[in-house]
Amino acid sequence: MMPFPLSLVADIGGTSTSVALAKGPELLSDTIRHFQNADFAGVEALLQSYLSGAGDLDGACVAVAGPVRGGVANLTALDWTIDEAMLKNVTGATTVAILNDLQAQGHALGHIAPEKLLAVIPGPLRPEEGSLVVGVGCGFNAVPVYETSAGRIIPPSECGHARLPLKLTEDIELAQYLQETVGYVAVEEVLSRRGLERLGAFVSNRPSTPRLVTAVPIPKNGTEKAAQLFVRLLGAYVGDLALTYSPFGGIYLCGKLAREFGPLLEGKGFESAFVDKGPFSLDMRRFAVRAIMDSDAILTGCAVYLNENLHT
C-alpha cells in the first residue's frame, strides 16, 4: 500500500479549526494553521481560504466536534453542517472522510511522540487489549479503541450525556444545584469547560467553602476547591468507564482541558477517585492512564485513518 502523496486534514471544533497537509500518515508541521470559526460563514469558506494555492490533493479527512452519520456531520456547538459532497467539491479530492473528533484521536494512538504522553497513572500500555480515549474540553465524551484483524475499530459514543455518578454528600448537593440551574445532571455539565465554571459557582456559594485561589496554575475560571472537585469527579467517572470497557491497553485523556489539567491530576486526587471502586479497587490499578499533550493529535489521527483505511 502506497501512502497518499498529499492530503488535507482538519480538526473542526466549536470555536476554532486547525488545518494541515499530510503526506501519508505524517503531518507536514509547517503547513498547520489555526482559524477562528467566527471569521467564516461556514467550513467551505474556511477550507477555501486555507487551500488557496495549495495545489492538487489526493485525499481529505476532517474531524468534527459532533456526531457523524451517513457521511454527514453536524457540529454540536455551531450551526455548521459538513458532508462528503461538499468536502470533495472544495478540496478536489476524490477520496474523503468525515470523523467524529474523538474517533480521530483514537486513530492517532501509536503515532503520538512519547514525550507528548503524560503519565497520570503509571503502567504498561498493551494496545492489543483495547484502549479508551476520553475527551475533556468544550464537551465530554469517550470512545473505546479496539485492534482487530480487520483493522482498528472505534465505535461512536456520546457518554457525556449520561447522568453524573454521585457518592459523597457534596456530590448530592452539586446534583441539586445543577438540577436547579441546568435541569439535567449530565456528566458533560460538570466535566467540561462550562462545567468547571459551574463548579466554581457552586463551591463559592457553599457556606463551608473558602473562597481561595492559590498560586497553582488552575485553568481559567477555576479555584483551588473547584479544581479539586473537578479532578475527583473526573477520576471517579473515568474509573467507571474503565470498569465498563476494560481498556487494559491504556486510557488516554485528551482535549484542551485535559492538557491544562494534566500536570495537576496527580496531586489533586485523580488516582484515588479512579481506583475507589469497592471490591474492584485492586483491579483498577491494572489500568494505565496517560494525558495526550499533543494539541495536533486529531490532525495526525485524520492522516492515519485516511492512509490506513481508505487508500488502496
Rank of each mutant, 00 (worst) to 15 (best):
G42C: 12
V90M: 10
V68H: 10
L47C: 05
L78R: 12
L78P: 01
F40H: 06
L87W: 11
L51S: 04
R69H: 09
N89F: 09
A93D: 11
R69Y: 01
R33H: 04
L46S: 03
Q36F: 08
T76L: 14
A45C: 10
A85F: 08
L46D: 05
N89Y: 04
D83V: 12
G59E: 02
D30Q: 08
A54R: 07
I82T: 12
A54V: 03
T76W: 13
D39V: 05
L47V: 04
A63N: 12
G71M: 10
A54D: 09
L57P: 04
S29G: 04
G55H: 04
A77S: 08
Q48E: 15
W80R: 02
V62P: 04
D58P: 00
H34N: 01
A38I: 02
P67K: 04
I32S: 03
A93L: 14
A73S: 01
A65I: 15
S49H: 11
P67M: 09
L57I: 10
M86T: 14
L75P: 00
R33D: 01
G92K: 09
D56K: 11
Q48L: 07
R69P: 01
D79Q: 14
D83N: 15
D83E: 05
S49C: 05
D83Q: 13
I82R: 15
V90I: 11
L47A: 01
F35G: 00
A93N: 11
M86E: 15
S52E: 13
D39Q: 07
D39W: 03
D83R: 10
D83L: 11
Y50P: 02
G55T: 08
T81W: 13
D58R: 03
A73H: 08
L47K: 02
